[in-house]
């Protein structure tokens, strides 16, 4: 475990340098290097704030080859299949690095966020950030690394956003409920299900109930515990 974490360090350092202009995510990724002592926990799990940004990070292990997972994620048209609040991703007609992400907003509205790919390493990493014109100040990255033995691939997702960036950010905060961590975890779990089983588990008895059940099944855990 320890050896494995250490072997990962160069990749993290590279990302940190690549995103040096992006303060929150850069800090979250690079926190390991600046820490005193021997704590090897991911930077985003630190009990600290990241300035003006909120940062969410989640990792999931998927028993599929790294290349297959990268390929699926890189085709952004696939993302709405497992990201609950993403309606669609539309590519820019001229610039292949640019995409517009359409997020589901309350009252049937849609929020458009234009992003550009900030960095890409085939089969390892995709990083993106919102463009200057975007309503929402956000950035994120997904990483793919081999897990030990036959355990498949570790997929790590980190998303940072500026929560005080106007009305759009408030909408996003509302979308992700009380816990953006929960949303990231749910999205990654659905990605895992899709890749490992070819489908997303549901307990509904009839197809017509699926959409309703999906909505009803998404309160926060505290609400559902009662």
């Amino acid at each position: 475990m320890h050896r494995h974490s250490r072997s990962r360090a160069p990749a993290i350092a590279a990302v940190g340098i690549g995103l040096v202009a992006l303060p929150a995510l850069g800090y979250a990724l690079a926190a390991n290097r600046h820490r005193k002592g021997s704590d090897t926990a991911p930077g985003y799990t630190a009990r600290r704030s990241f300035g003006h940004y909120d940062v969410v990070g989640r990792t999931v292990t998927i028993r599929r080859p790294r290349e297959e997972l990268f390929r699926t994620w890189r085709d952004f048209a696939n993302l709405p299949d497992f990201m609950a609040n993403l309606e669609k991703v539309a590519p820019h007609p001229d610039d292949p690095a640019r995409n517009t992400w359409y997020l589901k907003a309350p009252a049937g509205k849609t929020l458009a966020v234009e992003t550009t790919i900030a960095r890409e390493i085939e089969n390892e990493l995709i990083a993106w950030r919102s463009t200057q014109d975007s309503d929402l100040d956000t950035e994120g990255r997904v990483t793919f690394e081999d897990a030990p033995g036959e355990r498949g691939t570790r997929v790590g997702l980190i998303i940072a956003w500026h929560p005080r960036g106007g009305i759009a950010s408030k909408v996003v905060a509302k979308l992700s409920g009380k816990s953006p961590e929960l949303q990231a975890r749910h999205d990654l779990k659905r990605f895992k299900m899709l890749m490992e089983t070819g489908e997303i588990a549901t307990s509904v008895r009839r197809r017509e109930n699926e959409a309703a059940a999906d909505r009803a099944e998404r309160p926060t855990p505290n609400e559902e515990m009662t």
Binding site: T61, R63, E150, R151, G152, H186, K189, R190, K192, M193, E196, T197, I200, A201, T202, S203, D214, E217, R218, P219, E224
Partner: peptide
Amino acid sequence: GCFHCHIAQYSACENSNPVP
């Protein structure tokens, strides 16, 4: 298809309980 099913710990399946 998950790690636990792969090692025959079927009742710890990671994918059969719906996400929410």
